[in-house]
Design a protein around this nucleic acid. Structure first.
Lengths: 111, 111
DNA sequence: CGTTTATTTCCATAATTATAAAAATATGAA
DNA sequence: TTCATATTTTTATAATTATGGAAATAAACG
């Protein structure tokens, strides 16, 4: 519960949600903090604050490479949150929450 | 994006997350505001504030029955949020986010 | 009408969270 | 060591959000 609250709180902020989605798209290698700051036009100090928030919430992982620090999605943390939000729903009404949470082709227009 | 931010913000609060999960478990008929207040031991004024917050975020629906007002999960709103959180993930790495978000038996110990 | 019950709005206060400038830290290179 | 780059911590201020008492609204019933 507390983990979910932290994760939801971390995502419930425009800059952080944008950062998170950017890093989800960037894939497992992530992006350097400076790159993220530049892309989003957020001051370094502000971005650092938000990155820490996401990291502390278990949604991002940091890894140093030389003098840069790369942030990448913590897919396991992301999974935990999604599972928490869906588990109670499924127990009684599988048909209600299944479509939204599933990863089938056709949800995103890829095919 | 704005819808997702509102929904995440609504869920990122202990009382509201508890209320939401209670109502998810309660099913489509939901519960009267007073019942929720009594079960959680939250003052009516405080609960009303939180119920409104969840309703505005598109996560709950209100319906009057006599002098009581029943609040129930808005499964469509819930679905939208889950879809938003998972769609970008799936595009490149289906194997990464699929398991957490799916609704297979075995995630909740029901069988 | 007045009364009871259910819920909401109003309001002031308290608590939390965001922002970004400035100083500090860490790394790599000369 | 000194310099330049990358990021973080500190700090103060600003903005947002939570809380719950009291008054207001809404509905059912006599």
């Amino acid at each position: 519960m507390n983990d979910a609250l932290e994760a939801l709180g971390a995502l419930a902020q425009e800059t952080r949600l944008t950062v998170f989605r950017l890093l989800v798209r960037a894939g497992p290698d992530g992006l350097a903090a400076g790159d993220v700051a530049a892309r989003l036009g957020v001051p370094p100090a502000t971005l650092s604050f938000h990155l820490k928030e996401l990291e502390h919430a278990g949604l991002l992982r940091a890894r140093r490479d030389g003098r840069r620090i790369f942030y990448a999605t913590d897919y396991q943390g992301m999974q935990s949150l999604l599972a928490f939000l869906t588990e109670e729903c499924c127990q009684d009404h599988p048909e209600i929450c299944a479509p939204a949470a599933s990863c089938e082709p056709g949800i995103t227009t890829t095919s």
